[in-house]
Amino acid sequence: MFGNRLKNYAKGMAMAAILLEEGEKVALMMGNEAIARGALEAGAQFVTAYPGTPSSEVLANLSRVASKAGIYVEWSTNEKVAFEAAYSAALAGLRSMTVMKHLGTHWILDPLAVAAITGVDAGLVIVSADDPHPHSSQSSVDTRFHGRIVNIPVVEPSDPAEAKDLIVWAMDLSEEMKTPVLFRYTAAVAHSKAPVRLGPLRLEKREPNFPKDHPRLVSIAPHARANIPKLFERLERVEKVFEGEPFVQRFGPDSGVWGLITTGVPHNYAMDVLAAEGLLERVPVLKLIGQYPIPEGPVLDFLRSVDKVVVLEELEPFVEDQVIRIAKLNGVEVEIYGKNTGHLPRYGEYSPELVGRVLSDLFDVNYPALALATLDEVSSSVERRIPQMCA
């Protein structure tokens, strides 16, 4: 037991050194470690969390470097307290981040709706770790809908390297547009490892200054009525930003018979299938990192460039339903395949095998999915990670 604790301590200290590394270097990082590094590169001064797999390692790693980095970190009493503390700090001008798993995101909807209306004075990113499988949760819910319910931007990364960068992009977007941003990611990103290119650290030294702005911050009904239109004005500006890189990315040819609209981890699986079948130069791909408000211009252009499109996303047809709406309202005759057509499930964690099988059937190719025996062999060699209560 002591040996394992010593081993874990050594690993933690080694990662702490990487988190504070200066200069553009490449490090092998778990997704949650990359998100912690992203917070430091984004200039976060105030970070709160409530522990829950698959999100716990974000604050655990930041806590090891907080004093040296000059940031405040807190394990909060619950997710609502964590959010409200970070929201208050953002109102006082400090770049802030709050971290929780999907179950906790349910708890913060009431204050989150108010924050969407009042806006913020510094960047505020809500990091929500979804558990599609689920590996360590009593339910599996798509928290992207929480962003849509309260009308704040929703973004999603596809791998640890992009997760690190996206924290920076989301923080900048939040501060520029004066709105909280929901950063949704999944367990596969949280606990997978990948090479991550480190960017410059941004260790802010702002002094908090809470504004006395009753018409905006005292959200009684008359004030809310006056401020709600401003919320939608902010959303319109965010959509314009989402129409360009890095929030929307296009790969492959300009047009084709088949096309793919991808999000999150399934994007990687799709690109592997296309590469294996020699289809990278034949199938256009539109990757959406900014998913709400959906960038209608790029999506519409993409739909007009293909005859058929597959929408790949985990859990609910959040993007797919918006794509269908855009096609119908603009009279685009394109066949849209996904969850609504029964080709993809609305539950569970996607895998290379699932995506490969679906695209093989639709594209009429024979993608050589990895044999189950090989998967079992690989799985048996990976150290088992036993979930702990709220950890």
Rank of each mutant, 00 (worst) to 15 (best):
V273I: 13
V196A: 03
R64G: 01
D131C: 06
G338K: 02
K178C: 12
A161H: 11
N4W: 13
K230L: 15
R148T: 14
L91V: 00
G93D: 07
A44H: 01
Y350S: 03
L288F: 09
A16K: 13
V65E: 01
S55T: 04
F232T: 12
E84G: 02
H146E: 09
V47W: 02
G31F: 01
P253T: 12
P266F: 02
N4V: 14
R384T: 13
E239C: 08
E207A: 11
Y350F: 15
T143I: 11
D130L: 01
L312M: 10
E24C: 10
D110V: 14
G31C: 01
F363Y: 15
E156R: 08
A14W: 08
K230W: 14
A122Y: 08
F46P: 04
L91P: 00
V334K: 08
S255N: 14
N151A: 15
G290N: 09
L303N: 02
P284W: 02
L344R: 01
V257C: 05
S192V: 07
V218G: 03
R37A: 03
F242S: 09
P200R: 15
E349I: 04
K230F: 13
F302T: 02
G356P: 04
A194N: 09
V365R: 00
A129T: 03
P195W: 14
M177L: 13
A113V: 12
A27Y: 09
G38E: 03
V355K: 02
A14Y: 06
H135I: 13
K178W: 04
E349T: 02
L20H: 10
P352Y: 08
L362S: 05
D272K: 12
W258K: 01
L112W: 10
E333F: 05
L329T: 11
A276P: 06
I18H: 03
M13N: 11
I336D: 03
V265F: 01
A163M: 07
V81D: 10
D361V: 08
D272M: 10
T374M: 13
V378R: 11
G38N: 05
P246N: 06
A170I: 10
S139F: 00
R225Y: 10
G43Q: 04
K287Y: 12
S140V: 09
V181M: 05
E320Q: 08
P160S: 06
E320G: 06
I126W: 06
E353Y: 09
R95I: 07
F363V: 12
V283S: 07
L231Q: 14
R148H: 15
A27D: 06
D110K: 12
G104V: 14
V125L: 13
L375E: 11
E335V: 09
V283N: 07
L375T: 11
A27K: 13
R184M: 09
E277D: 09
G38P: 05
Q388T: 08
V283T: 11
V257H: 13
V358A: 06
I71A: 04
N8W: 02
P132V: 03
H191I: 02
T98F: 02
I386C: 00
E84S: 14
V26F: 00
L166H: 06
A82G: 10
I71T: 04
V150C: 04
A187D: 10
V154F: 05
A42F: 08
L362G: 04
R216Q: 09
Y350Q: 03
A170N: 06
